[in-house]
Amino acid sequence: MSLNWKAGGLMLGLVFFLAVLLVKPIGVSTQFVILDGIIADAVFPGLVTETAEGTTSTNAYLAKSDGKYAKAVASPLNYSFVFVLAMALGGLVSAKLRGGIPQAERTIPALWRANFGGCRMKRYAAAFLGGFIVLYGARLAGGCTSGHMMSGMMQTALSGYIFAAGAFAAAIPVSLLLFKKEA
């Protein structure tokens, strides 16, 4: 069972609209920083400290913005962190309600196979590397596609439109370069 792209787009737009109306714009990449901070604070206790002046960190990135990230590491059960966990849980619940992931969908797509062969580990490595590069770029830009492009454009922020143009200007030639062969 698949969702029509038009219905999916309308539902996604409605979710973004409701999020901005009721809580705040959606953004996800910062929560990876928070998760990293939680893990690092567990391994190196004292990375995040609460003082009379507020929450801070010995890590400059977590301490910036008056300790905003350090505070989120110290108290991660906030809207944004729970939202990201709920996205993963929602994907799992959706797959289970559909009866799981059919075996046919677990195979390597024909387009990938035509261009890179049938090695699953190569595909997993490429997906991980691509995800890492996108997340690294998102943190350099101060936000991700959901924050800059989707929420930003919905709020008519110029930066959202510039980000979207840049994302497509990079994605199209890279896709054409990587996927030269058709399935």
Rank of each mutant, 00 (worst) to 15 (best):
125 A>R: 01
157 A>K: 12
2 S>K: 14
100 G>Q: 08
53 E>M: 10
111 L>Y: 09
73 V>I: 11
136 Y>T: 15
33 V>I: 12
170 A>P: 07
144 C>E: 00
165 A>D: 09
22 L>N: 10
152 G>T: 02
19 A>V: 07
118 G>W: 01
71 K>V: 04
120 R>S: 05
22 L>W: 14
126 A>C: 13
183 A>V: 11
26 I>Q: 03
10 L>T: 12
62 L>S: 02
103 Q>R: 10
58 T>C: 09
63 A>F: 06
95 A>Q: 06
36 D>C: 13
6 K>A: 13
173 P>F: 02
106 R>K: 15
157 A>M: 09
147 G>I: 00
39 I>D: 04
148 H>K: 15
80 S>F: 12
154 M>W: 07
71 K>Y: 04
153 M>A: 03
128 F>P: 00
68 K>N: 11
10 L>N: 12
161 Y>F: 14
36 D>F: 07
95 A>L: 13
56 T>M: 08
62 L>Y: 04
118 G>I: 04
168 F>T: 09
49 T>I: 11
79 Y>R: 08
126 A>K: 05
59 N>C: 11
140 L>V: 09
101 I>R: 00
181 K>V: 13
178 L>W: 10
119 C>N: 14
116 F>A: 06
107 T>M: 10
169 A>K: 03
100 G>A: 05
61 Y>H: 10
173 P>D: 14
16 F>D: 01
82 V>A: 15
125 A>N: 03
29 S>K: 03
6 K>L: 14
89 L>G: 10
130 G>H: 02
74 A>F: 06
160 G>E: 03
31 Q>C: 02
59 N>E: 13
157 A>L: 14
126 A>R: 02
142 G>W: 03
17 F>G: 07
135 L>D: 06
70 A>T: 00
137 G>F: 01
79 Y>P: 07
49 T>G: 03
62 L>E: 01
113 R>T: 01
106 R>V: 11
